[in-house]
Computed example of a mutant assay.
Amino acid sequence: MSTSDAQHSDFNAQTITSIANLARLSLNDTQSVEYAQSLNKILDMMDTLKGINTDGVTPLKSPFDNAQPLREDVVTETNHREEYQSVAPDKEKGLYLVPRVIE
């Protein structure tokens, strides 16, 4: 069985607290319980969606009937690089030079 076919295990507050700790997040007990419930609801919804038969359904490239209008790709501003770099302490060939910090 592939990982995409495996059923999810229910999250509990302890699991959420452990994940939060690894992510260096501070959660109180109430938040851990709320997040566990929310994640379990999301995973239940994903399980429901997995059960829907989509055989014969043509994928959409856009949910809209009309093509999305795109603006013309044209340059609208002039190049200000020299002006912006005029105050830089050190530059070369349009690049900012900085002191080496790792030997």
Rank of each mutant, 00 (worst) to 15 (best):
V57C: 08
S32T: 11
T58S: 02
I52Y: 06
G51K: 01
T54F: 14
E34C: 10
D55C: 05
E34Y: 13
L60D: 04
I42D: 11
D44K: 04
T58N: 01
P59Y: 02
Q37T: 01
K50V: 05
S38E: 11
I42F: 15
N40W: 12
S38K: 13
M46L: 14
G56K: 06
G56T: 01
L43P: 00
T58W: 09
Q37L: 11
A36N: 12
L60P: 02
M45E: 14
P59S: 04
S32M: 09
Q37E: 15
L43I: 08
Q37F: 10
D47P: 00
L60M: 10
G51L: 03
P63H: 06
L43D: 07
P63A: 01
L39R: 06
L49M: 10
L60G: 01
D55G: 02
Q37H: 12
E34G: 09
D47S: 05
K61A: 07
Y35A: 01
N40K: 02
D55P: 03
K50R: 14
L49A: 07
P59I: 00
S62D: 11
L49G: 00
S62W: 12
I42S: 08
V57R: 00
N53F: 11
Q37R: 08
V33T: 07
S62R: 02
S62P: 01
D44L: 09
L60N: 03
G51E: 03
M46P: 05
D47F: 05
I42W: 14
P59T: 01
T54M: 12
A36G: 12
Y35D: 06
T48V: 00
N53R: 06
K50C: 10
L60S: 03
K61N: 08
M45D: 13
S38H: 14
D47Y: 01
D55S: 09
L43C: 02
K61G: 07
T54K: 08
L60E: 11
G56H: 05
T48K: 09
G56F: 10
M45K: 12
P63D: 05
I42G: 09
S62G: 03
V33I: 14
T48D: 09
K50D: 13
M45Y: 15
L49H: 03
G56N: 05
K61M: 03
T54D: 09
S32I: 02
T54P: 02
N53M: 05
T58Q: 03
T54Q: 06
A36R: 05
T58R: 04
V57I: 12
Q37A: 11
T58M: 04
Y35C: 05
A36F: 14
L39T: 06
D55H: 04
G51N: 04
D55L: 05
L43R: 05
Y35I: 10
L60K: 05
P63F: 10
K50S: 10
G56C: 03
M45P: 07
V33A: 15
T58G: 06
A36W: 15
K61D: 08
P59V: 01
L39H: 09
G51D: 02
N40H: 11
K41E: 14
K61V: 06
D55W: 07
Q37C: 04
N40Y: 13
V57E: 11
S38Q: 14
